[in-house]
């Protein structure tokens, strides 16, 4: 395709988008008005299922199917990265030299590691009550593990991080979400319906029905996925070198 044709296609697409976007903007309801039809319905549905954090109710109850899609995107993205960054035949593994880390940083990382893990678990477990949830907590958990790389060196991290286990955890988290969705069928309603277990008492840890369970599945998937992703990046940046003459 020549440059000129591409520009024409870009212009047509851009003009079409501009026209549609302008038309959509003209029909928007006024900013900051009193009427919030979607918000009111979402809050009512969240309270009916005793979920204090309405955002969690939208993500994991009312639109749980969308979240399944998002979770699968992360799963597929990590899978793709693992395939792309694998050690090829022309590359060899060179053990990195042990790092000299200041004592202060070493101690800080050692003290912060358990604190960060508790914070991560707290964020996952309180997704239905306060801001947070599986994704945010999972990322905190995965970052916490990499304090070992910051506080010591790559060798120390590798000893407590069997990548195979985390790959399994990644898949298990993704599978658990699907199983919880199918449990909705078994309970007699639809896929991912929040009717499998009781909704509990409002504003307690065990409220929201399947919302905390789905949060746990996502938390496990995200934490393991990020660990696997970073393992590939660290391998490539720290250990793997290309053979000479390639």
């Amino acid at each position: 395709m020549s440059r000129r044709v591409r520009m024409w296609i870009l212009a047509v697409g851009g003009l079409g988008f501009a026209a549609l976007f302008a038309a959509a903007c003209l029909r928007l309801p006024g900013f900051g008005g009193d009427s919030h039809p979607y918000g009111e319905r979402a809050v009512r549905a969240a309270l009916a299922h005793r979920t204090a954090n309405v955002i969690a109710a939208v993500n994991f109850d009312q639109r749980a199917f969308d979240t399944l899609g998002e979770e699968s995107i992360l799963f597929a993205a990590v899978l793709g990265t693992v395939v792309l960054l694998r050690q090829t035949r022309e590359e060899r593994e060179v053990p990195p030299e042990p790092a000299r880390v200041p004592l202060l940083v070493r101690r800080y990382a050692l003290v912060l590691l358990p604190v960060a893990i508790v914070v991560g678990l707290y964020v996952v477990a309180h997704g239905q009550l306060s801001p947070g949830g599986g994704f945010q907590g999972g990322v905190v958990l995965a970052t916490a593990l990499h304090l070992l790389y910051i506080g010591a060196d790559y060798h120390a991290l590798e000893r407590v991080r069997p990548v195979g286990v985390y790959e399994f955890g990644d898949a298990a988290g993704e599978g658990a979400y699907l199983v919880l969705g199918l449990a909705g069928f078994v309970a007699g309603s639809s896929f991912l319906a929040n009717s499998v277990i009781g909704h509990g008492t409002f504003n307690t840890l065990a409220s929201g029905g399947t919302v905390p369970l789905l949060n746990m599945a996502v938390g496990m998937e995200v934490a393991c996925a990020v660990v696997v992703l970073l393992a590939r990046f660290l391998d490539q940046a720290v250990e793997i070198e290309e053979e000479k003459g390639t």
């Binding site: 954090n53 955002i55 969690a56 964020v123 801001p131 947070g132 949830g133 994704f135 945010q136 990322v139 905190v140 995965a142 970052t143 990499h146 990020v226 992703l229 970073l230 990046f233 660290l234 490539q236 940046a237 720290v238």
Partner: peptide
């Protein structure tokens, strides 16, 4: 705040680590 928390979780340590390793 949920979005802000996602941004903080990903942006403060994970993104710099991925970029610097690359």
């Amino acid at each position: 705040p949920d979005v802000a928390l996602s941004q903080l979780a990903v942006g403060s340590a994970l993104t710099p680590l991925l970029i610097l390793l690359s």
